[in-house]
Design a binder for these strands. Structure first.
Lengths: 150, 150
DNA sequence: GGTATTTAATTAATACATTAACTATTTCAC
DNA sequence: GTGAAATAGTTAATGTATTAATTAAATACC
């Protein structure tokens, strides 16, 4: 298995390179980055979202989130609200201005996702989800490589 | 299909987040980044590699490659050689020092790849490759979304 | 043979990624 | 209650990512 071009990271990165430009084209029209969108769509669809929550759900690291939220705050799309009961915690909440954007962008993002989904059958898609899941779990648990062949 | 968490980019990013730390742990031991490794392994296994070639084969953009190659050059792992017949072109070639690294790191990278591969069956793996390929191609060709269901 | 167009690599500007360290709270154990 | 340890968010330093613009060399065309 000497083939680096077919390695897991390269396979996934190639696939991402194929789809992300389509997303970016959309986001650019609304002066957003992909990461900014990820933050927005989480706070638009959940309540009481802290930075830690955002990190989990957007897959963005806490240090990255700082500057991303900074910029969203400058654009008046979100604002930081310090928690009263635990003053370490900070909630990131949507602004009214952000809500307008949500209504505009969301359907277009969904259209892209549908377009991607329609590249393959439901069966293929679910199999892929399952395979990725297996690998994710297999690599999470330390070292059990040769066992979990399934 | 309202589920952003199961969107294609998020699925792939989650999988990458699961596997990349294992790679990084290795690369860090040799004072390399993942991107630097990608460049190295291409020039170690091919001849007459230009920046443009590297961009294709590493999936790194030309602007990114500039600083990556700069750093590899500083570490004496590669050197730039301007082409004689086309003076715009620049070959990136491996140094002897780099070759030593190659022998050390390559087997360990292969071990990680094997570990990932062993998380799923051959059948699952091939199905995933095929599915990713379909999506990559489907999104490359502009707009033919609803047609290529397979 | 000189100008316009491409091409290969780079620079510039802004945004994010990663790791380690730091600050302000809070919690826990004694 | 108090000091140690944990937690939430941030800062710092270095290394990419992305887009647009630039430079230098090569090719095309008239």
């Amino acid at each position: 298995m000497q083939n680096f071009d077919q390695s897991f990271p390269m396979l996934l990165n190639r696939a991402l390179d194929a789809v992300m430009p389509t997303y970016r084209e959309l986001f650019t029209r609304y002066n957003l980055t992909e990461q900014q969108w990820r933050v927005l769509r989480v706070i638009w669809t959940s309540k009481n979202v802290t930075s830690a929550n955002l990190s989990e759900r957007t897959l963005l690291s806490p240090p990255s989130l700082v500057s991303i939220i900074d910029r969203l705050e400058k654009k008046n799309l979100v604002s930081r609200v310090r928690s009263v009961d635990d003053r370490r915690r900070i909630y990131v909440v949507a602004t009214a201005e952000g809500r307008i954007l949500q209504a505009e962008v969301t359907p277009q993002v969904l259209a892209i996702q549908t377009r991607i989904r329609n590249c393959v059958s439901d069966k293929e898609w679910l199999a892929m989800e399952k395979t990725l899941q297996k690998i994710t779990e297999g690599m999470q648990s330390p070292e059990q490589s040769l066992a979990a062949k399934a």
